[in-house]
Design a protein around this nucleic acid. Structure first.
Lengths: 238, 238
DNA sequence: GTAATTATATGATAAGTGTCATATAATTGT
DNA sequence: ACAATTATATGACACTTATCATATAATTAC
């Protein structure tokens, strides 16, 4: 039952996520302005934030919560393309290139997200060199990651890709307070949709890693207990 | 035997490739300036234009010629990530994000390429909103293509990907004057490095397409003789 | 022009992984 | 609280595709 989302107004001036975002480079005066051009919404786990082919009306700024960007392949299978967290901007690619969304953004957990007015953001980005560079850096990093994903899909087997994926989850979302448990909950199907394999193979490999004492499966969570072995298994380039 | 490359100075003002590039939006006055901040070089087929981990010293603008951007995977196998042609800019990702190159750029045929001074280009890009947007559009398109490549690698079999690759080569480089022959010469190995398969499988599939009268292999060239069947074989989403 | 190398071609085989089947555990809805 | 649904788990099997082997054609080098 989807009720309309509650709205909590955050203030950009005091927003901690902002300090870790592309807007960290913008000066105080403009931040007051930014605040006047945004509104804030929350999304429940599983809710769609935007979807494929939609037109961007603003820039999403993730206050907190985790989000997956995914797309549906030719036979209906999902592919997770990016993973997003607090401090990230969302839906910026379509916005800055005047395109439609080419993926779906779905909340992996309850999220609080602000939307900045499109025209205001574009003006700010074009006038503020630092912000402009920060956005270039952001999209550039996403392109680099995508191209690394291509190499991985093209040249590694499923076992290596699974290990790499776990390391990627760790790099993106980090650990919980125990310094072992991945701070993101993805279903086996979602993990498979990231790795590019079947759900069954994903389940099987996680079981194997569990047996091999590389990870530990506790309830729905994944603990990395031997990161060296995991790194070796990933067959990384560097 | 690599002799140093001959230098032909082209003039940006009259440059036809420029009109099809991100610099098409820049006004005449600035183009004169642009011309003063660039130099021109030619590269022979197979020559390395830049390589992985190198620092970008300028922006490459391809006058004419075709170039592959590729990277070496964990076991030394190449992966072709992008294909570049006249009118394209090259090495821009590392430049605008202040990063090192993460792929190698290698000439697929003899090329004529200009290099624009880094500082001048960055200044121009930051001051000229139209140019800035054109670059955003360019990197955004590259990201979109990369993410489509991810879906393809993740969810399609080799036969579908091969068909898709041939359509991609056609979309990128078009046909020769006969309106059938792909206007790019890639070795079977290079095609495999794009598709993400073994050279043998690439050869086999092209032979099959040839037998199925989808394509025709003439000397080193590939003719598309049944594009409908090729499109169906590619199992495209749209 | 001939030898050496590289590219293309094709067959046989084996490994990897997807699919289908079935079972159990966990979650959700009423 | 219980039934229904969904998620996780695991086995058996088949199919795709990589690898190895070998052959021929095309380039390149001398």
């Amino acid at each position: 039952m989807k009720a309309s989302n509650p709205v909590y107004e955050h203030n950009c001036t005091t927003c901690n996520s902002r300090l870790h975002s592309v807007f960290s480079v913008v000066d105080a005066e403009n931040i007051v302005d930014l605040n006047a051009h945004k509104s804030c919404t929350t999304y429940k786990k599983g809710q769609v934030i935007f979807s494929q082919n939609g037109l961007p009306l603003g820039l999403f700024c993730v206050n907190n919560g985790k989000i997956k960007l995914s797309t549906s392949g030719p036979d209906g299978k999902e592919q997770i393309l990016r993973l997003v967290k607090g401090g990230d901007i969302l839906g910026y690619r379509a916005l800055i290139s005047n395109d439609r969304y080419h993926c779906n953004a779905i909340a992996l957990e309850d999220c609080s997200i602000c939307v900045v007015d499109k025209a205001y953001f574009m003006k700010l980005a074009m006038e503020n060199q630092q912000l402009c560079r920060a956005i270039f850096k952001k999209i550039s990093d996403d392109l680099k990651k995508a191209e690394e994903h291509i190499v991985s899909l093209s040249q590694k087997n499923v076992r290596e890709r699974m290990a790499e994926a776990l390391l990627f989850f760790k790099a993106t979302y980090g650990y919980e307070s125990d310094n072992q448990t991945l701070a993101v909950q993805l279903s086996r199907e979602e993990i498979a949709d990231f790795v590019g394999t079947s759900t069954e193979s994903a389940i099987r490999l996680l079981s194997e890693f569990n047996n091999d004492k590389i990870i530990e499966l506790v309830a729905k969570k994944i603990k990395i207990i031997n990161i060296d072995k995991l790194t070796k298994t990933a067959n990384l380039l560097y």
